[in-house]
């Protein structure tokens, strides 16, 4: 039962799991640009803005008190060394796994190479790798790249707007 001791991020609730996955990406890559690009792509699949919170499934999750309670419990569990089985079961029921977690569990890599699968159906990289760059501020053709986050802009003016309001937005 000690498997999760090696990976403290595994244990925390799904509310923090999303944040955690971004942190893992951040730790794995010292490159802010890569990180920002990944976070931006991931955000395109979000249902709600910002970092997604996965909320409990029960009907009675609607009252504020209940929400608070759940939140309290999760906060507490984060600080606990080890959770009870009951708490784990509760958490499993309350937080459905994301598709990417289910995909990881399915271990499709181990299938023989002739078996069609989700992984093999991906279209794969384009033949021509030329990427057109559009200014993230105004949409024009973008010649310049922000050295901090890798996002594109077309002019000094757009660069200033970028720096003032959105640089590293997806990393923070």
């Amino acid at each position: 039962m000690d498997d999760d001791a090696s990976n403290p991020l595994r244990r925390v609730s799904s509310r923090t799991r999303k944040v955690a996955s971004k942190m893992v990406a951040a730790l794995a890559s010292t490159d802010n640009r890569t990180q920002a690009a990944l976070a931006r792509l991931e955000a395109l699949e979000n249902d709600n803005a910002g970092i997604e919170t996965v909320e409990p499934n029960d009907e009675d999750d609607d009252s504020l008190d209940e929400d608070d309670q759940v939140y309290m419990q999760k906060k507490q569990s984060k600080s606990m060394k080890r959770k009870t089985r009951q708490a784990k079961a509760l958490e499993a029921r309350k937080a459905p796994k994301t598709f990417l977690e289910l995909l990881h569990e399915a271990n499709l890599e181990s299938l023989p190479s002739h078996v069609p699968s989700y992984l093999k159906a991906s279209v794969g990289p384009p033949i021509s790798t030329s990427r057109r760059h559009f200014c993230t501020v105004c949409g024009s053709a973008a010649k310049y790249t922000c050295v901090r986050c890798g996002i594109r802009f077309c002019s000094c003016r757009c660069q200033n707007i970028h720096n003032d309001t959105r640089c590293l937005k997806f990393v923070a």
């Binding site: 690009a37 931006r40 792509l41 395109l44 991906s122 279209v123 794969g124 990289p125 384009p126 033949i127 790798t129 030329s130 990427r131 057109r132 760059h133 559009f134």
Partner: peptide
């Protein structure tokens, strides 16, 4: 690819 996705 314009978005930074590595897909055709």
């Amino acid at each position: 690819a314009d978005l930074g996705m590595n897909q055709a």
